[in-house]
Each structure stands twice: as structure tokens, then as C-alpha cells.
């Protein structure tokens, strides 16, 4: 088990949560109702909290003196390890809910399994986070069912949103470093696939939607290969910190 693989694994999970938080923050003041503004902000805050704990852990493991802010704000897009599912714009509410459905189902299974990780910090973060993402999953389920099993218009748009997000699901199940899995630090992503799909497909059925029959998108986010969207997101997220190094308030 290499240290670099361990740091990269923790960074991957941290970056998933951080980028997800940033995308959710876009909805504040733009959601269809005030309660939804509050809900998406709360879910984003949970993700941000998980990201902070994981980034701090990655920095300590790495041992080069980088803290959570350095890792969040002073890395470029090729150094981010998040999956592409979370980084693309989500300026359609149906897309935001379809993505939350997929991502929270995956995070729920992932964190549940990571509770017994040999990495004690990872296990502690996971034990806390699994309870939070259960609420995120509930939220997505309510909306996907309401919109899918709603009007003709909402049904069609929810199906289109699910079709748009589904290709990015496959990347979540790309194998992790074999040494990390063998050491009991990492959860092997392919092992989560059936449980995640079972969760999601039950909701899709309840919502009277169809499981999309679409090709998988190209992965590579864990290796730093991202869509153009991540660079734009980071420019927005990082510019204040980079313009005013060391500033605090």
C-alpha cells in the first residue's frame, strides 16, 4: 500500500464532497422555493463539512504541511480527484435532484462500508457522514418521486434529467488501488455497484420513470482528467483565496 495511493484515495472522496458542495451552493437564492434554498444550502454544508475533515486528513497523511485550505484552494483542476458526476453544471432542478439521487445512494453505501476502514480517521468521518447523507438521499427521493410521478411535463423533464446524469454513474464504480483495498483502507468501488443500483432503481420505479438505457461516459476523474466545467468551478471557488493569500475574517 503506497502513501500516494492512500492520499489520493482520501483526496478523491474529499474532492467529491467539496465540488458537490460548491455546485449545491449555486442554488442558494435560485431554488424553486425558499425551503428548497435552505435545504440545498444545508446539504451543501454537510458536504463541505465532510470535505474539510477529509482534506485535513489527506494533508496530515501527505505530511508536507498542506492544510485543508491549501488543498481546496491552491490545487489546479488536474490535481483534483473527484468523479465527473459532481463537477458538471446543474442549473436545472431535475438534473440537480437526479444527481443527488445517484450521488447520495453511492455515498450512503460508501460511507456505510468505510465505517470499518482500517484508516481510523476515515472510519470516523464515515460513521458521522453516513447519517447525514441518509437525509440527502431522503430529500432526493421525495423530489424524484414527486416530479417523476407528477404531471406529464414534470415526468418528461425528470426522465430527461435522469437520462442526462446516468452516463456518469459508471465512474463511481471504477476500481480503487488494489493495495489499499487489500489493506482494508479503501472500499472496493465495484463491490458497491449492486447495492447502489438497487437503491436507485427502486426509486426510479416508484417514480414511474424508466431506468435509462444509455452508454457510460468516459471516466478518469480520479486520475485528474476532468471536464471543462471543473476549471470554471474552481476559478469561481478559488479566486478569493488566491487573490488575498492568508486573508481571514
Amino acid at each position: 500500500m503506497s502513501l500516494k495511493a492512500h492520499v489520493d484515495y482520501v483526496l478523491g472522496l474529499a474532492d467529491d464532497a467539496l465540488v458537490s458542495a460548491q455546485r449545491l451552493g449555486w442554488w442558494i437564492s435560485r431554488a424553486p422555493q425558499l425551503e428548497e434554498d435552505v435545504a440545498l444550502a444545508n446539504i451543501g454544508l454537510d458536504q463541505l463539512g465532510q470535505a474539510r475533515a477529509l482534506l485535513a486528513h489527506a494533508g496530515r497523511l501527505e505530511g508536507e504541511g498542506r492544510g485543508e485550505d491549501d488543498l481546496a484552494h491552491l490545487r489546479d483542476d488536474r490535481e483534483f480527484r473527484n468523479v465527473k458526476l459532481v463537477e458538471r453544471p446543474q442549473e436545472d432542478f431535475g438534473v440537480a435532484m437526479a444527481r443527488m439521487l445517484l450521488f447520495s445512494a453511492w455515498q450512503t453505501e460508501l460511507y456505510a462500508a468505510l465505517r470499518s476502514s482500517a484508516d481510523e480517521t476515515l472510519a470516523a468521518v464515515a460513521a458521522k457522514a453516513v447519517k447525514e447523507v441518509t437525509y440527502h438521499a431522503d430529500h432526493a427521493v421525495h423530489w424524484v418521486v414527486r416530479l417523476g410521478d407528477g404531471t406529464e411535463e414534470s415526468h418528461a423533464r425528470m426522465q430527461a434529467a435522469l437520462d442526462a446524469e446516468w452516463p456518469w454513474l459508471a465512474e463511481l464504480f471504477e476500481p480503487a488501488d488494489a493495495g489499499l483495498v487489500a489493506a482494508g483502507v479503501a472500499v472496493d468501488p465495484p463491490a458497491l455497484r449492486d447495492a447502489v443500483l438497487a437503491r436507485v432503481e427502486a426509486v426510479v420505479g416508484e417514480a414511474t420513470l424508466q431506468v435509462p438505457q444509455v452508454d457510460d461516459a468516459v471516466g478518469g476523474g480520479r486520475r485528474g482528467l476532468h471536464t471543462e466545467a471543473l476549471g470554471h468551478l474552481l476559478a469561481d471557488m478559488q479566486h478569493l483565496h488566491r487573490s488575498h493569500p492568508g486573508a481571514s475574517w
Partner: peptide, 8 residues
């Protein structure tokens, strides 16, 4: 009315 309120 909403599962998420003024604080987490």
C-alpha cells in the same frame, strides 16, 4: 414543511 431548517 421542509426537512432542512435554519440550522443543520
Amino acid at each position: 414543511s421542509s426537512r432542512f431548517g435554519s440550522t443543520a
